[in-house]
Amino acid sequence: MITFEGVSKRYPDGTVAVDHLDLEIPAGRITVLVGPSGCGKTTTLRMINRMVDATDGTITVDGRNVRDVDPPTLRRGIGYVIQQAGLFPHRTIVDNIATVPLLLGRNKKEARTHALELMERVGLDAALAKRYPVQLSGGQQQRVGVARALAADPPILLMDEPFSAVDPVVRTGLQDEFLRLQDEVEKTIVFVTHDIDEAVKLGHRIAVFQVGGKLAQYASPDELLAAPANAFVRDFLGGDKGIRRLRFTQELEAEDDASGQTADTVADKAADR
């Protein structure tokens, strides 16, 4: 579990990016931070792994104040995925994925073998292992980014608009697989997006931020759609029309999931024989 208690961030230039934030992020679930650009989502996320240090308040991870952990050590235990993937252009895909295990001093061969397994898990052809990031599409790079974040098996994953830079068709595919993967790994995930559709689709809980770094509402997707806390949230959801549309897509997704699962089970059984 990750908790924020009265956390604020004021940048040196005086910008208040996050304003007295209280938030409890449950373990093993996807919590989405959503809101318009500049509302402090990235800042909030980065305070967890101390890429940004809070100016006020306390952040704890599993009961431990993040301030008490030296940043590189803290970060090696928290996966991080960003929009442009941030892959190392000078390392092959397999070495990119093995980055953190190698930083942790694990055996090189084992780290590579494990990286290959991870490639398969995130839906990447093992033939891509020896390629360099420039040789991959945006969608494939994002998968590598996810595999890299998972490589040291950290309990926590921070994801900052990881699917925003790819085209909508690829994005839908990545989201679906991401949900499936999360079913297996059950990480504590903090997921940042500005896209309310993505938030409703992925989030177990959703924190809606408004400009000025204020938390407007923290609720499950159902609660959010049923009872927006204020005019800002209602607007952000797209008014009544937007809410009806989101509910409708939510139901469709649920149906898809159900039928998808049956199809999978059938396929699994067929494979067993």
Partner: peptide, 24 residues
């Protein structure tokens, strides 16, 4: 890595990234 990519950069890449292209 400087010589990787080049013209073959996006050859098979985009198809494989589509759902169904990989393990999807």
């Amino acid at each position: 890595w400087e010589r990787a990519g080049g013209t073959r950069r996006r050859k098979t890449a985009d198809q494989a990234a589509l759902p169904g292209g990989g393990a999807a």
